[in-house]
């Protein structure tokens, strides 16, 4: 079995999964959502964004919805993406892995804080 591309989950892919947890979004909206949830630290460029999306689609962590016209912003046809249940699961396990890491960091006094 060839090594899976998303194991471990790259942070860009994780952020995309998180962005899609709320609602179905198109590429540019994902980029904006990711920028927002990282306080502007991560601005995904088209190459990174779509290569991550491609890998996520291949692993069936997200799915592409039928193209639809976004009449509000501009009447272009855009591709929308939706989180699958497998995607939600992998995002949760990644979050749990990070939480474990956080607990370790706290016990080693690298990070302060009361709870995870």
């Amino acid at each position: 079995m060839p090594k899976r591309k998303l194991d471990p989950l790259p942070s860009a892919a994780f952020q995309i999964l998180l962005a899609l947890a709320g609602e179905d979004l198109h590429g540019y909206a994902i980029m904006r959502q990711v920028a927002q949830q990282t306080d502007g630290r991560m601005r995904l460029g088209p190459g990174t964004l779509y290569s991550s999306i491609q890998s996520l689609l291949e692993e069936k962590f997200i799915e592409e919805l039928d193209a639809r016209v976004d009449t509000k912003a501009s009447p272009d046809r855009r591709r929308y993406y939706r989180l699958t249940s497998a995607g939600r699961k992998i995002a949760r396990s990644e979050a749990e892995r990070l939480a474990d890491l956080l607990r370790v960091a706290r016990t080693r006094k690298i990070l302060r804080g009361d709870y995870v």
């Binding site: 590429g27 540019y28 088209p46 779509y50 290569s51 999306i53 491609q54 855009r78 591709r79």
Partner: peptide, 20 residues
């Protein structure tokens, strides 16, 4: 970019650049 990527996402990438 390699052609398989451009075929699949070239337009979307261009659109994203335009949006930004």
């Amino acid at each position: 970019y390699p052609s398989h990527f451009r075929q699949a996402y070239g337009d979307s990438a261009m659109q994203l650049f335009r949006d930004r």
